[in-house]
């Protein structure tokens, strides 16, 4: 698996500065692309599916409230091109998600970058396998 390691800070900063979201299948209008937050918690499920994958976390957002959060990512083939496999995240993993949240305030957003407890980062758009560009998407 190709991952960014703990010292990937500059890459992550670059990543979150880019208004790119995984919305090939639907409009991005529901997400606040001008706002980036982090949510820290424990993975409860990883839906490795089309048209989108979803990662469900019981976690704490900026308001400090612990609740279930849902994060949308690309479908399996696009994630695999970014080095993210179905086995890359499993229930029980402690993680921090960087996300563009929903505009309406519900606990959900786009999967921009997921930092695991070992410092590795899973970024659907930011960490393609060596020699390959990130898959094409736009919001």
């Amino acid at each position: 698996m190709k991952l960014l390691k703990a010292n990937a800070g500059p890459s992550l900063l670059l990543l979150v500065a880019m208004p790119i979201v995984s919305v090939a299948h639907h409009s991005a209008a529901m997400f606040d692309l001008q706002k980036t937050i982090t949510v820290t918690g424990t993975v409860t499920s990883f839906q490795f599916t089309n048209p989108h994958s979803w990662l469900i976390i019981m976690g704490k957002g900026p308001d400090g409230k612990v609740q279930e959060w849902s994060f949308e990512a690309d479908g399996p083939s696009t994630l695999m091109r970014a080095g993210i496999k179905v086995s890359s995240v499993v229930p029980g993993d402690k993680v921090t998600m960087t996300t563009h949240p929903m505009k309406d305030g519900r606990p959900a957003g786009t999967w921009l970058a997921l930092t695991k407890s070992d410092g590795s980062v899973l970024a659907p758009r930011g960490a393609p396998p060596p020699g390959e560009k990130a898959p094409a998407r736009a919001g």
């Binding site: 299948h25 639907h26 409009s27 209008a29 529901m30 048209p51 989108h52 994958s53």
Partner: peptide, 21 residues
């Protein structure tokens, strides 16, 4: 590639796009 396998996106009354969580 199954489109309905995990499609929880619905149309809002104003015509916009929203995901059911």
């Amino acid at each position: 590639w199954s489109c309905e396998e995990n499609n929880n996106v619905v149309q809002k009354p104003d015509g916009g796009t929203q995901s059911n969580l």
